[in-house]
Deep mutational scan, measured.
Amino acid sequence: DDVELRDGDWRVELKDADEEILRAVEEAIKNGASEQELRELAERLIR
Rank of each mutant, 00 (worst) to 15 (best):
S34K: 05
D9K: 01
G8M: 13
I46R: 06
L14A: 01
D16Q: 08
I21D: 02
V25Q: 01
L45D: 03
E26T: 10
V3E: 12
R23A: 12
E37H: 05
N31R: 13
N31M: 10
E13S: 15
L41I: 06
V3W: 13
E40T: 10
R6E: 14
W10A: 05
E43F: 00
E19D: 12
L41S: 00
E35P: 08
L5P: 14
D18Y: 06
D7N: 12
W10F: 08
K30Y: 06
D18G: 15
D7M: 03
L45M: 08
L38E: 00
Q36C: 06
K30M: 11
E35V: 09
R11A: 11
V12E: 15
R11I: 14
D18W: 07
V25T: 01
V3F: 11
R39A: 09
W10S: 06
E37Q: 10
D9S: 01
S34N: 09
L38W: 15
D2P: 11
L45G: 06
R44P: 00
R11W: 15
I29Y: 15
W10E: 03
Q36A: 14
R44M: 07
R39N: 04
L45A: 08
E26N: 07
R6T: 14
A33M: 14
D2K: 11
R39I: 09
R6C: 13
G8A: 09
A28S: 03
K30G: 07
A24I: 15
L45N: 04
G8Q: 07
L14P: 01
K15G: 07
A42L: 15
D2F: 12
L5I: 15
L22M: 11
R6A: 15
D1H: 13
Q36H: 11
R23N: 07
R39P: 00
R47F: 01
A24P: 01
R39T: 03
N31G: 11
R6N: 14
I21M: 07
L22D: 01
A28Y: 06
A33R: 05
L14M: 09
Q36S: 11
R11K: 08
V12W: 07
N31F: 02
G8D: 13
E4F: 03
E4V: 08
R6D: 14
E19W: 08
E13D: 12
A33W: 13
R11L: 15
I21Y: 03
E13C: 14
E13Y: 03
I29W: 15
D18M: 04
A24W: 08
E27G: 05
L14C: 05
E27H: 07
E20I: 09
D16P: 03
A28E: 01
R11V: 11
L5V: 14
E19Q: 10
L14I: 10
L38Y: 03
E43S: 07
V12N: 08
D7K: 08
R47K: 15
I29P: 00
I46P: 04
D2L: 12
L45C: 04
Q36Y: 02
L14G: 02
D18V: 08
I46M: 14
G8R: 05
R23M: 10
N31K: 12
R44Q: 12
E19N: 10
E43R: 09
W10V: 06
R47W: 00
L45T: 05
E19H: 08
E37N: 02
E20N: 14
E27Y: 01
L38K: 01
L38T: 04
L41E: 00
G8K: 08
D1P: 11
S34A: 04
L41T: 00
D18Q: 08
R23Y: 05
D1W: 06
K30R: 12
N31V: 04
E43N: 07
E27F: 01
A28Q: 02
L5W: 13
A17D: 03
I21R: 01
K15I: 13
R23F: 08
I46G: 07
L41F: 02
R6F: 14
I46D: 05
R39Y: 02
D9L: 00
E40F: 03
W10H: 05
V3C: 04
D18T: 14
D2A: 11
D9R: 01
L22V: 13
R39K: 13
G32E: 02
V3I: 15
R11Y: 14
D16G: 14
L38I: 13
R47A: 09
N31I: 06
E37C: 01
L22R: 13
R23E: 05
R44T: 06
D18P: 15
L5Q: 14
D2N: 15
R47L: 08
E20D: 11
E20Y: 08
L22S: 05
E27D: 08
D9N: 03
A17V: 12
E19T: 06
R47S: 15
G32F: 01
D9V: 00
E20V: 10
I29A: 13
V25G: 00
D18K: 08
V25L: 13
D9W: 01
E20C: 06
E40K: 10
I21K: 01
V12H: 09
A42P: 00
R44A: 10
D2E: 15
S34V: 03
G32R: 02
A42D: 03
